Amino acid sequence: MTPVSNPTVLAPRVTEPKAFGRVAVLMGGTSAEREVSLDSGRNVLEALRARGIDAQPVDGIPALIEALGAGRFDRVFNILHGNKGGGEDGTLQGLLEALKVPYTGSGVLGSALAMDKIRTKQVWLSLGLSTPRYVRLAKGANVHDAARELGLPVIVKPSSEGSSVGVSRVFNDADLDAAVELAARYPGELLMEQLIVGGEYTVGILGDVALPTIRIVPAGEYYDYHAKYLAEDTQYLCPGLEDAAAERAMQALALAAFRAAGCTGWGRVDVMRDKAGNNYLLEVNTAPGMTSHSLVPKAARQVGIDFEDLCWRVLETSLEAARG
């Protein structure tokens, strides 16, 4: 497909690798998304080094604290995915802010809020941004009553995990308890959400620009962990919408959602589109994957940004003085 012309994202802010100093590529950690993070981190590390940047791998936050204490790094490229032991919930960002170490991606507020799907929804709804109806499942809540309130089918998932970890699609009342049991294996609250029947899309954000949409078409029924990271037969259509007005509308919604959650720098917003053409926001990912299957690199290529250039531009977000 011919790359889309979008000059607003085609000008890097710096041209010399020395402008970044010594860069820690933070990856791995102890979250449920460790393996994805390691894969992403290896790719980022290779890309930065290919552009002449002095980049070194660091596995997890304790190792990073030790390295920063020894003065080995000037900034951090955060590709640590997930919540518990991960780098997306605001904890890492708060640490780096306190140490005055520049880092990529969203700040404390955006990272913490986006990791909490329930509270992100509350912000979106307060601003009139569309998202599927939901119920917060408190400990001991009657999940069958909650499902009747929303109406089957529903999705049950942890409120603070990514990469489709702990997610179940429930079409029958008899399957609800097993879905809750699976989601409860992960920390944080549980979320039951109306299942939107339609197309699954994602919109990458780079700086203050929404990249072309991607429509995700898995070979199986759902875009689950296997389809995201392992399967070779998942289709990614970019731009995801043939109608130019519909494409712009979804990009605008995604960018508004990203800003509303206090996010900055770069990220990805996931969206469902029902058969009537209505868009529904699902979540924001503040440290998206950078694997061979990942979506932000696919969208960036459509505006002429290859993987090495994308990693450079993401690293540039660490040059920003103020954060949301």
Rank of each mutant, 00 (worst) to 15 (best):
S159F: 03
D59I: 06
G60F: 09
A254N: 02
P239L: 06
R34H: 11
A112C: 12
A147N: 08
G140W: 02
D89T: 00
K100I: 10
N285R: 01
G128W: 04
R13S: 11
A210S: 13
V209G: 10
E320R: 13
V108Q: 01
Q56D: 09
E283R: 04
R75V: 07
G207D: 11
G140V: 10
H293I: 07
G207K: 06
S168W: 07
A178N: 15
P57R: 05
S111K: 02
S126W: 00
L190D: 08
R323E: 13
D175A: 14
E221D: 15
R133M: 11
A210H: 08
R75L: 06
A11P: 01
V4R: 10
A245I: 10
L211Y: 01
A287M: 14
E149L: 15
V154K: 07
L109P: 10
R136G: 11
L211K: 05
V217Y: 05
Q251V: 00
F258Y: 10
V165R: 04
G60V: 11
L211M: 10
A322L: 14
K157V: 07
E33S: 06
V101F: 00
G71T: 07
P239I: 09
R248Y: 05
L96M: 12
P3F: 05
D89Y: 03
G220E: 12
A183S: 12
V108T: 12
P7L: 14
A112K: 05
Q93G: 05
A19C: 13
I65G: 08
N279A: 14
L92A: 01
A245K: 13
A50H: 13
I155R: 03
G265L: 03
E46V: 13
F20T: 06
L190M: 10
M250I: 13
R248Q: 15
V154P: 06
I65F: 06
V180Y: 08
W312D: 03
I65W: 00
F77L: 11
